[in-house]
Simulated assay, not measured.
Amino acid sequence: MPELNLLKAFQDEVGYEAYADGFGLDDFGDRSGLAAGWSKDPDFLARLTPFARATGGGSFYALWHVDSRTDLATLPVVVFGDEGGQHVVARNLRELFQLLAYDTEISVDWDDAYYYRTEDQTPSDAHAQFVTWLAENFALSPTDNPDALLAQAQSEFGDSFTVWSNAYLTT
């Protein structure tokens, strides 16, 4: 997938978690976290592709194969929280990249996922390089309103993801 390959090359250059707080690309497709914390059902696992660490605590991002589209970069991005909760956060990878450029770790709980940054938060070491990379590769800017992007993703995919995932979740 070109988008993630480009990001992986960038990450290899600047470092894991060096360009977006708490974020780092991991082993693409490693479903062990899903099987351990959510469901071992093969149908559930087949429709999710984990690809990145979302927080220092262990939350992770996955692509949700919502339909039969073949361009993986157009799939919705979901987050699975290390303390529970799973939510759609972006309608596609490029939107996630804009959220990452906000440069704060996502907060995930059972009811919500959100990005919160304090006024005095120090940018990640390679944040400025990431913003340049985002503009050069995709003609995108960081979002200054992560809540709006999250709301759009939730509006389009949130209910259907909740219904679909709840059918598989272990209690």
Rank of each mutant, 00 (worst) to 15 (best):
W164M: 15
L100R: 11
T143M: 12
A135E: 10
H127A: 14
H127R: 11
F161G: 07
W64S: 05
T162K: 15
Y115V: 05
T70V: 09
W133N: 00
N92R: 07
S124F: 00
D159S: 10
T104R: 12
Q121S: 15
F97Q: 02
Q98N: 02
T55Y: 01
P146Y: 15
Q98V: 13
D120H: 03
V88G: 01
W64N: 11
E119G: 03
A153W: 10
W64Y: 08
W164A: 15
D147K: 15
L93S: 12
T74N: 10
F138A: 09
A113N: 07
L150Q: 12
P146S: 14
L140K: 12
Y116E: 09
L72K: 14
T104Y: 02
A148T: 13
V78N: 04
G85R: 00
S124A: 15
A139H: 11
L99E: 06
L93G: 08
A90F: 04
S107G: 07
T122A: 14
S59M: 04
A73Q: 15
V88N: 03
D82G: 07
S141W: 01
T118M: 08
W133F: 13
R117H: 08
Q154I: 00
F138H: 14
G84R: 02
R69N: 06
D147P: 07
P123T: 13
P76Y: 01
A101V: 11
V79S: 11
F130W: 03
F138V: 04
